[in-house]
């Protein structure tokens, strides 16, 4: 050990941490604690896995919805574009191509007789 007068830095001071001295020797009981903690961790991870699988299912379902909605909207946009530029007027007495289907809304229809 060097004398206090010869200490140049804090690293020259010997401490329990510096010499890796454990206050308590390693015991067999630590292994039991680690087994317990790892068991808990394993359960948590399994729960996490289940949650991710559920989330994956939800995402896939939503993706399918988005895909079908996109297809429907693209079809509607195409039909609207066709309506805006009709090449021929509807001849008298003949229903137009989309007659009876003004759009895809859920119309209430009521027959009227004359």
């Amino acid at each position: 050990m060097i004398g206090a007068s010869r200490v140049k830095t804090l690293g020259d001071i010997r401490t329990a941490l510096g010499i890796r001295l454990r206050s308590k020797p390693a015991q067999q009981e630590d292994s039991y604690r680690d087994v317990y903690l790892l068991g808990i961790e394993k359960l948590r991870m399994r729960g996490e896995m289940r949650r991710l699988e559920r989330q994956r299912g939800r995402v896939e379902k939503r993706l399918a919805e988005i895909r079908s909605k996109l297809e429907r909207l693209a079809q509607m946009a195409q039909e609207d574009a066709e309506h805006e530029a009709p090449s021929h007027p509807t001849p008298p007495g003949k229903p137009s191509a989309d007659a009876g289907q003004p759009d895809r809304r859920p119309w209430k229809r009521m027959p009227i007789q004359y």
Partner: peptide, 12 residues
Amino acid sequence: EEATTLLEPHPL
């Protein structure tokens, strides 16, 4: 929103 009832005329 829209009024959504449409009529379908048919001859008697």
